[in-house]
Simulated assay, not measured.
Amino acid sequence: MQLTTKTICQAVALALIATGAAQAEDIIKIGHVAATSGAIAHLGKDNENGARMAVEELNAKGLLIAGKKYKVVLVPEDDAADPKQATAAAQKLVDAKVLGVVGHETSGTSIPASRIYHDAGIPQISPSASNPQYTRQRYNTTFRNVANDEQLGAALARYAVQTMQVKRIAVVDDRTAYGKGLVDEFSKNVKKTGATSGAGIVATQFTNDKATDFSAILTAIKATKPDMIFFGGMDAVAGPMLRQMKQLGIPIKFMGGDGMCSDSVPRLAGEGMSDGQVICAEAGGVEPSQEKGMADFRAAYKKRYGIDVQTYAPYSYDALMTIVEAMQQAGSPDPVKYLPVLARIKHKGVTGNIAFDARGDVQDGVLTIFTFKGGKRAKLAVVK
């Protein structure tokens, strides 16, 4: 039979349609949510960059699950660190039929969003939410691959009392789920750790996560003559607070958690921060045997984006890679099939070995304590 030009064109068109349909079936959508607008957008974008690096690497190598090739597509959403916007973003991802979620960035957004993912049966790994309540909801879809505030607050309290030997501590929180939760855990552990040394909390103040003027609370704190201020909040507030501490003649130590432990703190504090004044902890970290993997990731990140890692990009990268490994081990990207595998996964990531306990918390969470010298973070210790 002689084929006409019209017949050939029709055959080609049908083949292209069939190919397109096959490709659509072979796509795995994974959501990512963080604050990519607002005061902490630099941290949210850092998280998103880490997840995007994982996607690019998987697609460059070619992802096979049960012998079938898949393309991973990242579906990013911005929650602006706002709980209401976070739930709206979560519902958008559910409607988009994502098969897993990396995020959210903050505890205040991760906690309300987690119910939506649970109701839809979609696994979620937060690479940065540290409030214990996030996993205490007992949702089987909820995981995190960083240490929680119980571990973070306890480690910082021990370091302040035992290593720094401070006696009089003022605490300030930003009234968010993260900031208040961290200060509560820190204060509880100062009371416990400082029982024999005489260390204690001499002032308790609070602000909010959008504040810029701290003169009233800092003046009240100054009157209590503390050795150190402990702040529960993000770098966008910590920087201006450090500037005003200097203006008011309060040149004391300033300690906080991962939210104010970014490379942006020196820029945000300007002349208000001196070398060694700030001590902070990142809810993660690598032990000596794993340092090369982290160093290689940081170098690859800088080559890809032209900037240094802020804080949690490596944890976002590992969260996405952990989800995909669970899919591979289950032989399916279907959440119903890979979720039980994710719960018992043992993933070797750039941030260390990742496995979860019964609540979804990372097992053997490691923390890294830093200070700042010459405008750069300097590691002081890796602790558990």
Rank of each mutant, 00 (worst) to 15 (best):
T163S: 12
A86W: 06
P335L: 01
S130N: 06
A60Y: 07
V72D: 04
A199G: 01
T368R: 14
D296H: 02
D26T: 13
L242G: 05
D275R: 04
E325D: 15
L242F: 05
Y134V: 12
M1D: 00
R115C: 00
D334M: 10
Y117E: 09
I201T: 01
G239C: 02
A18I: 14
I122Y: 02
D82L: 05
V286F: 12
V336E: 15
R158A: 13
A60P: 04
A15H: 03
R377M: 13
G62R: 06
L268V: 03
A154M: 11
A155R: 02
P226G: 02
V94E: 04
E48Q: 14
T351F: 14
P251Q: 03
P132N: 13
T219D: 05
A355H: 07
A177L: 10
Q247F: 05
K376Q: 15
T19W: 13
T19Y: 13
A269T: 09
D334T: 06
T196L: 11
G31C: 11
L14D: 06
R304L: 01
A381G: 03
C9A: 12
A381I: 10
P76S: 04
G31W: 08
M53C: 04
A11C: 00
G100Y: 02
E185V: 00
F356P: 10
R359W: 11
N145E: 09
G20R: 13
L248M: 12
R298C: 10
E287D: 14
M294I: 05
S37D: 10
A60E: 14
R158C: 00
L93Q: 07
M273H: 06
I169M: 01
D258T: 00
G20T: 13
L342A: 07
K69A: 14
I17T: 12
A15N: 07
I125N: 06
S316E: 00
N131K: 12
